[in-house]
Design a protein around this nucleic acid. Structure first.
Lengths: 191, 191
DNA sequence: CGGTCTCTTGACGGAGTTCAAAGCTAGTGG
DNA sequence: CCACTAGCTTTGAACTCCGTCAAGAGACCG
């Protein structure tokens, strides 16, 4: 059934169909409505989520009471509050569906058992985290290197489809500036 | 001999002394002088480095020709250009010793062989990358949440010893602002 | 259609940069 | 072990990017 998860595993490790079926039994399936929360600030992040359809975003509420989006996850991406998930400590983040979304989730506990029973999954997660870490490093580089305007132009060049699926104020939030300024940038770069 | 590396492995996985000795044979030891480069822009990052003594920094040269430090690594931290190391593609970064530094390094090739021969190391690296990813996420959160001044105050509270070991212009570079502005912040917060 | 989100526009202000110059500090060679 | 130089830090003035505030125009949903 979950071909999308199987295909993602196949990118990193070799496993048989039977083995996959046992692995798959550690996961649960959820459907989340647009704007519904998977995690709110103060809760312990109990699950690691794999997006099979739709978009999630992770955000926090900053000192001024504004929502700051720090990450999006679309199909084939994992999302969790790594810190809270690892330490089972209260999270400082929210996780919310941007559009109606479907995920496969695994609890901390189930993940431990999965890794013990299927050691090949260590390799899978090592690869996934390695990639996520590399992406985070590039993200930090961009934040350091680019002006806000360049951040937007770079983002809209690399993820044009995203601009269609996600409202502008979330893009602005993700790129760390105001909707007003985004509007100004767009005006300049249309004409 | 390399007790520090063994101790770091012990934090995440159980291995015998004999096993460690075989694992250790995959590594090389290097001594790097202050200001010496381990990697320069355009090169392929061939090694993954574990710092046993001293400090490394990773930086790139931005559009204005300034060095932007994006990461420090002290004792017990791994450092590499993950992207270049994984894909064996040219790096956009430099890696340089801040003070005289000692590292254990492992090549891409040796790391692959190590992981095949000692699958427990998959778990070790999974944990290391997971932690590094969580740290990168927190870093991004700080960059979004704090003003430059708050970034400095936060940094100097959490890593007071670092301020002693590392020159101010590198701290400024790491926190993504100018040495002049750092000087201004310090003046304000001393009196 | 009425109301609540979302996007746009413009005026103003402030955090942080740039540039230039002077003061310090530490390493190096004689 | 001192003197000199290059590199690091501080100061101040001018400037700019971008945030804040306020208000209006669309757009979407019940």
């Amino acid at each position: 059934m979950s071909q999308i998860l199987k295909m993602h595993l196949d990118k990193f490790i070799m496993i048989s169909q039977e083995e996959f079926e046992d692995i798959f039994s550690f996961f649960q399936h959820h459907t989340i409505r647009k704007k519904e929360n998977l995690l709110v600030e103060g809760q312990i992040c109990k699950q690691n989520y794999f997006v099979s359809k739709g978009i999630l975003r992770k955000f926090f509420v900053n000192g001024k009471g504004m929502e700051q989006t720090i990450e999006f996850a679309i199909e084939n991406w994992w999302m969790t509050d790594t810190f809270s998930f690892l330490q089972q400590s209260p999270s400082g983040f929210y996780m919310q569906a941007v559009e109606n979304t479907e995920v496969y989730s695994i609890s901390r506990d189930a993940q431990e058992r999965l890794l013990t029973k299927h050691p090949e999954m260590e390799k899978y997660f090592r690869c996934v985290y390695q990639k996520a870490y590399a992406a985070a490093q590039m993200r930090i580089k961009f934040l350091y290197d680019f002006s806000r305007e360049e951040l937007y132009l770079n983002f809209s060049k690399n993820y044009p489809d995203f601009l269609q699926r996600v409202p502008q104020y979330l893009i602005a939030s993700y790129l760390n500036f105001t909707p007003e300024y985004l509007s100004e940038i767009r005006r300049k770069n249309v004409s």
